[in-house]
């Protein structure tokens, strides 16, 4: 009988298992002296850093805060509070100058300005997908929502080519963070620990050679609600547990749900599990209360995102094995 309880963890046992994995990797496989982790102020990096401390000791974990001018200020504040609570050394590297030097803001804002001529860079904006994924058959498209200094919002659908160009700019944020993490890790012979969770991995919600550019992925086997279970067990600060998950790469706050998944993690996780394990739609419907057509829509969206991002989960294809 299919049940949501399939995602329940024994958090102590799971933390120990991941801790063993980290020790095995750092000490025996990579033969390094510790781990660097980017602390975003979100739940994933909080959990990974807690387990790194459990595995390696607080003196062998280096945290990096990597904000830029469009980051939500509360993210840095929460990340600092959490690093202080763990007692790990943490360094702040503001990556705004790097992004400026690559003309990331300038190039991206030019695209936004072409859509909204009054846009002057002081406005905030974010990008969302339509949130009616379960309610109707539709095609994913991105909408840009701007907010001027007076709080007035405007929105417009983004063309495919503009979306690609904006993404190329935005992805530079994670890629520059990756470069900084490797700089700090290599100079003291540490590994870089990643924070990608299972829904992100399965659905391709990370940046190739950005936040996906790491040495190990300690929580890539965990669904998001399992990450929350571990967070509570590990004593992650409540402010981080309570905040809505967000990519935090747009000046106007946006949640993971609004930006990519189009459903809450509680629903997403169980549907992804059911999709992956081929659970019959009637059983999923009985357990979740969703109608069969809603589940089918979700499954179609999962398959489409998985197809579009297959290359993220592979080494670059080559003729080596042919």
């Amino acid at each position: 009988m299919f049940s949501k309880s399939v995602l329940n963890l024994d958090p102590a046992a799971e933390a120990n298992r991941i801790s063993e994995f980290i020790r095995e990797m750092v000490v025996r496989k990579f033969k390094r002296k510790g781990a660097v982790i980017g602390l975003s102020g979100g739940i994933d990096s909080a959990v990974v850093s807690e387990i790194c401390v459990q595995a390696l000791g607080r003196d062998r974990v280096l945290g990096l805060f990597l904000p830029e001018k469009e980051s939500n200020p509360i993210s840095l504040q929460y990340a600092q509070q959490h690093a202080a609570k763990m007692g790990v050394e943490a360094i702040t590297v503001d990556i705004t100058d790097h992004l400026e030097s690559f003309k990331v803001y300038e190039r991206r804002n030019a695209i936004v300005q072409a859509m909204f001529p009054e846009f002057d860079g002081s406005w905030r904006f974010h990008i969302t997908l339509p949130q009616d994924l379960l309610e109707k058959d539709r095609i994913n498209y991105h909408t840009i929502i701007t907010e001027d200094k007076g709080g007035v919002r405007r929105q417009e659908r983004i063309s495919g080519s503009d979306w690609l160009a904006i993404s190329a700019c935005q992805n530079m944020k994670q890629r520059i963070r990756m470069m900084q993490m490797y700089y700090y890790a290599e100079r003291i012979n540490y590994i870089v620990a990643g924070t990608t969770n299972r829904p992100e991995l399965m659905q391709g919600f990370y940046v190739k050679y950005g936040d996906g550019g790491v040495d190990i992925e300690p929580i890539a086997h965990l669904y998001k609600i399992q990450v929350y279970q571990l967070a509570r067990y590990l004593g992650v600060i409540e402010a981080i547990i309570q905040r809505s998950p967000s990519p935090d790469t747009y000046s106007l706050p946006v949640t993971d749900k609004e930006f990519y998944f189009c459903m809450d993690y509680e629903v997403l996780d169980i549907l992804l599990y059911a999709h992956k394990h081929g659970v019959a739609i009637e059983e999923v419907s009985k357990e979740t209360g969703l109608k069969p057509e809603q589940i089918k829509r979700a499954f179609r969206d999962f398959a489409a995102k998985e197809r579009a991002t297959w290359h993220l989960r592979q080494l670059p294809p080559s003729l080596l094995e042919h």
Partner: peptide, 11 residues
């Protein structure tokens, strides 16, 4: 085509 491609088609 993926959804970005559909938007290209729309344009």
């Amino acid at each position: 085509i993926d959804s970005t491609g559909i938007l290209e088609l729309v344009s």
